[in-house]
Amino acid sequence: MSADERERRGTLRRGGFWRDNSLTLVFGTAFLVVLACQAVVGHAEFNEALTVEGLQTIGLGEYVTTSDFAVDVTENWQSEFLQFFLYVFGTVWLLQRGSPESKELHNAGPESDREQRLGDHARSDSPRWAGTKDWRQRVYSRSLGIVMGCLFLGSWSAQSVAGVAAYDEQQLRQLQAPVGWAEYLVLPDFWSRTLQNWQSELLAVAAMVILSVYLRQRGSPESKPVGAAHTSTGVEG
């Protein structure tokens, strides 16, 4: 069965709303649950620090509006979006023999309009902008990476703003002078928060790419078929 036939069959074979969107719903719900747990635990830790310093504790509702909570959240968000931004653009050109995370070795690059179903090669069910021949096609052809890049820059900027606010609050509690935003961007606190997340995301990507060459997960599109050769590249289970 060709890739086009598999795609059409998958489009026609629809289940209910929950089944058709279960991946997004499960991970979206898990995100909210974990975020709520982070707020509860972070609130307890924040109040412990206030108690040690002889200051009045605050409620959970007030804590989730603090810069301390905001910087802890956004420093993780920015690294996740950076990971996917680099991965989306990097996998256009970068290859890994034997990994389902890589394209086939002869397909490095943006591929032809025919392969990507652009312009005259667009089908009736293709997104409208894929069938155009102007700036809309160029933008839509890179829209996933562009949006991921914007989300990364937005969340990284939010981290810097929340980070300097949290840093200055700590400075004032210690009777030290606060710093400005530009000054904070060159301080170890900002880069420590940033780099500790970047290194973990890059490690996770590298581990997934190389481990998927030799290990399998039956039924997962992130894995090759269990019986596929280790050298099979760009093959999904």
Rank of each mutant, 00 (worst) to 15 (best):
Y87F: 15
T11P: 04
D125I: 13
G42V: 03
Q38D: 08
L95W: 01
S22Q: 13
S200D: 11
A162I: 01
P221M: 12
G131Y: 02
E222Q: 14
K103M: 11
F152Y: 08
M208D: 05
R128N: 09
E222R: 11
S22A: 15
E48D: 15
R19A: 14
R114T: 13
T91W: 03
S124K: 15
S79I: 06
A207D: 10
S212F: 01
V52G: 03
T57Q: 09
P188F: 10
W135C: 05
K224L: 04
G59I: 08
G16A: 11
D113Y: 06
F89G: 02
G10S: 13
A158S: 08
S67C: 07
D20N: 15
E7P: 00
V92M: 05
W198D: 03
D72I: 03
L215G: 04
F46C: 09
A122H: 01
S124C: 10
S143F: 04
E236F: 15
L172T: 08
E80S: 12
W18R: 12
L172Y: 08
I146S: 01
N76P: 04
V33M: 08
F84K: 06
L203N: 09
F27P: 00
R173A: 09
V88R: 06
L215P: 00
Y87I: 11
Y87K: 07
E201M: 13
D4K: 08
A204D: 09
A207Y: 09
G149K: 03
E169T: 11
S155N: 07
I58V: 14
S112A: 10
A166T: 00
W156V: 03
Q174T: 11
N21C: 12
G154A: 10
P188S: 06
C150T: 13
S22W: 12
R13E: 15
R19M: 13
G154M: 06
V161M: 02
S124N: 11
N47M: 09
D4A: 13
L211G: 03
V209C: 07
H106C: 12
G28Q: 11
R123K: 15
A39E: 02
W18Y: 09
Q137V: 10
V26R: 06
Q96I: 08
R114S: 14
P188A: 09
G61F: 02
E111A: 14
D4S: 12
A44R: 14
L144A: 13
S192E: 12
Q174V: 08
G59P: 00
L23Q: 07
Q38L: 13
S212Y: 00
H43V: 06
L86P: 00
T231K: 05
V52Y: 01
D4H: 08
Q96W: 05
R97D: 03
Q174W: 10
D189Y: 05
A30L: 15
R138I: 11
A229D: 12
V147M: 09
E236V: 13
R14D: 10
Y140S: 07
S155F: 00
W129P: 01
A108C: 07
L195Y: 02
S143M: 13
A182T: 07
E101A: 14
Y63D: 06
S160I: 02
E45C: 10
R136G: 02
T29L: 14
W129S: 07
